[in-house]
Computed example of a mutant assay.
Amino acid sequence: MSLITEFQWVPFKADAMSSPAGSELKKLVPEMRARPGLLHTFHGAPIEKPQSREFVHVWESESAYRDSKTLPVQAQASQLFRQLIDTSETAFAPFRAAVALDRPFAAVAAAPVVSLAFMMLGADVDVKAFEAAWTAATASVAESGSKPAGFVAGASGWAVEGKVFVVVSGWESVEANEAAHETTKAAFGAIRGFEKTVEVHHTSFSAPPQ
């Protein structure tokens, strides 16, 4: 039984948390944290869009994640979130992905900066070919004998719905991540042809009091 890591990015309106809907949402937080099967929750503001919020929920199983969608408190929270979302910038549309990561997210979230890359693949993409290209690329980087400067931890995996491959990596800084992109560009060049769209942003996470 593998853990499921749910990523949720919400672009909030400027006055979202001070609005009546924001106040009601805050009241639901204890009940949201107590949902069955929820192990950990992290949150942060994407550096590229500070008004937005990134929520990450780690579930004990896929069934726990799916069951959470049917809870009354989830329906209440979703209704309130809809009132708080900023829909004026289509480039920052809200999204959610539930992912079976190959390593625990907590080690990545502990880094000062986390890079989150969501690769949306075309419907006709050969998944096995993509995985072979990804394995070859990561092996090539590993063979260099040393990890990129500033790298803390990483994880990757497929979303449970749709052809979405997610890569999360922890870094000492955004600059360290960008420098690593330059040095590994050749190794990962082979996977570029598989991507339909890619969403990448950086977030500093904190875990709320339990």
Rank of each mutant, 00 (worst) to 15 (best):
A93V: 13
F130D: 01
I85L: 12
S169T: 07
R103H: 15
F165T: 00
T41Y: 05
A75D: 08
I85D: 01
W9K: 15
A77R: 04
E143M: 14
P112N: 07
S2R: 15
V58E: 09
T138P: 03
V174R: 14
P11N: 10
S61T: 06
N177L: 06
F118R: 01
T138L: 13
G37A: 13
G193N: 02
F118M: 09
Q8F: 11
F12A: 10
P20A: 04
Y65E: 08
P50D: 05
K185P: 05
A110C: 01
A186V: 12
S63Y: 14
P72L: 05
T184W: 00
S88C: 06
E161K: 10
F205G: 01
D126H: 08
Q76G: 02
K185Y: 04
V58Y: 10
A110P: 00
A64H: 03
K163R: 15
A129Q: 14
H181Q: 09
S88E: 05
T70Q: 15
K163S: 11
E24T: 02
I4Q: 05
A176D: 10
L71V: 01
R192W: 11
G154C: 03
A97K: 10
K26Y: 09
S206P: 02
K196H: 12
W59P: 00
A107N: 13
H43Y: 14
T197G: 10
L39H: 01
G170H: 07
L116W: 11
V10Q: 13
V127S: 14
W134S: 07
L25D: 03
G162F: 04
W171D: 00
V168Y: 02
V174H: 02
M120V: 12
E31T: 14
V125E: 10
S52F: 04
M32L: 12
S23C: 12
K185A: 10
L80H: 01
D67Q: 11
S144Y: 15
S68A: 09
A159G: 13
A107P: 04
A106G: 11
S18T: 12
S52M: 08
A129S: 14
F105Q: 02
G145P: 03
A64F: 08
G44K: 02
A142I: 00
G37D: 09
E199P: 00
P104E: 04
G170Q: 03
R103N: 15
Q76I: 00
V10D: 13
H40Q: 13
S173P: 02
R35A: 11
I191E: 05
E24M: 11
V29G: 09
T41K: 05
A190N: 15
A142W: 03
A155I: 00
P30T: 14
L38I: 02
D15H: 15
A180E: 00
P104I: 05
P72Q: 03
A117I: 07
L28V: 07
P209Y: 15
E161L: 08
F12N: 09
A106T: 07
E172T: 13
I4G: 04
W59H: 08
E54V: 05
F95A: 03
F188K: 03
D126V: 08
E182G: 01
V58P: 06
S78Y: 06
V58F: 08
E182F: 00
A111L: 08
